[in-house]
Computed example of a mutant assay.
Amino acid sequence: MFPSQESLKKNFIVPSPAGDVAAPTGANLYARFAIAGAVCYCDTNSDARTPVDVVKTRIQLSPEVYNKGMIASFRQVVAAEGAGALLTGFGPTAAGYFLQGAFKFGGYEFWKKTFIDLVGAEKASENRTAIYLGSSAIAEFFADVALCPLEATRIRLVSQPTFASGLLSGFSKILKEEGAIKGFYSGFGPILLKQVPYTMAKFVVYERTTELILNQIGTPKDQLAPSTLTTVNLGSGIVAGTVAAIVSQPADTLLSKINKQKGAAGESLTSRLVSMAGQLGVKGLFLGLGPRIVMVATLTAGQFAIYGDIKRVLGATGGVEISK
């Protein structure tokens, strides 16, 4: 599932260990963080994410049809529409998560360093949970600005298979018929409600779980073998992904619902959300949670493991550590 060190070295420039090669700093460093985040979030995950995302979205949007669990729903989709239906929305998924990964991971590193510089290393270490939460929230906001149009297109393609043939045609059709704001950003509120708490939980749980594991190991992080660090990242990512999936599930359901169809004339986004939440109830808001935990926990583990590996290969080791 994960690329080997040899594969990474073939595809990326590895800084020489020679003493005359300066470590990257500033924009050069954060560009490497962004590249690592984009790759780990998209190229290694979108193939696996798309089929599960299709089934999860169908369960959320048509519970009266897809009501027998994750495996049975997979079979229903394939039986009714063929195996190719499981890749519906692959284009927007890949493009959207590539952009989001760059903004999310690169932005998180940038804002974390900014806050550390603002309050000082000692105070930042004492208040590191707040630093993790604030940095991830700001990074996710900008990531969602980039993601929202592509996510709206993906959901429209999944919920209405005859709407368009793919990313470009679907994107163009929404833009032409509904305009940029209404067509692409009707779901911006729900996507913030979903992604910001999701990302905050994801990063803070990952950071604190990693800190706990490393304290139990008892060996300084910079002295651990790459394989050990990858294992630590995998374990922390599973825990972080599970918590993040549960926290963000209600908003994920509302996002799927609100992008399924156009709103009524004159109906505000807030009124639509309140109405949908009332109709769904608590049980309805958590439809599809099982498949989503499987998807998010697995992919989050992969993201952090691959992100760490690619950072090492790119020489992007200049991030600030504030864990005790």
Rank of each mutant, 00 (worst) to 15 (best):
R49L: 11
A94K: 14
G69T: 12
G89R: 03
I35P: 10
K10N: 04
D20P: 01
V78D: 01
T93Q: 11
E64G: 14
T50Q: 14
A22W: 01
G101W: 08
F90I: 03
S7Q: 11
A94M: 10
S46G: 07
P24E: 01
V14Y: 02
A72F: 09
F98Y: 14
A23Q: 09
A27I: 15
F2V: 10
T44K: 05
R58T: 00
A72R: 14
D53V: 06
Q60H: 03
D43A: 14
V78L: 00
S46M: 11
A48C: 08
F33T: 08
K104C: 09
P92A: 04
G91H: 05
R32L: 12
A72M: 07
F12T: 11
F103D: 06
T88Q: 10
F98R: 12
A72L: 06
N67A: 12
R75I: 07
T25H: 10
A83P: 02
K56I: 13
L8F: 06
N67K: 14
S16M: 02
A85F: 00
A102G: 15
S4D: 03
F12V: 03
F2G: 00
M70D: 13
K56G: 07
S62N: 05
A31V: 15
G101E: 12
V52H: 09
P51W: 07
A85V: 03
F90C: 03
F98V: 10
S62H: 06
V55F: 07
T25V: 13
K56A: 14
N67W: 09
L87K: 11
G107H: 07
A22S: 10
G19R: 15
T57E: 04
F2D: 01
F105K: 09
A18K: 13
I59M: 14
G107A: 06
G107R: 02
G84Y: 07
R32H: 12
G91M: 06
K68A: 13
F12I: 07
D53C: 02
Q5Y: 11
A94G: 05
F98M: 15
S73I: 08
A102R: 12
F90P: 02
I13N: 03
D47N: 08
K68Q: 15
R75M: 11
F105N: 14
T57F: 03
A31D: 12
T57Y: 02
V39L: 13
V21Q: 04
A80H: 01
V77K: 04
L86R: 09
D20V: 04
A23N: 08
L87S: 12
L61G: 02
R58D: 02
N11Q: 10
F105P: 00
F2C: 02
K9A: 12
K10I: 01
V65I: 10
T25C: 03
A22H: 10
M1E: 07
V14H: 01
V54A: 03
K9I: 07
L99V: 08
K104V: 04
G101L: 04
N11A: 08
Y97R: 04
V77T: 05
A22K: 12
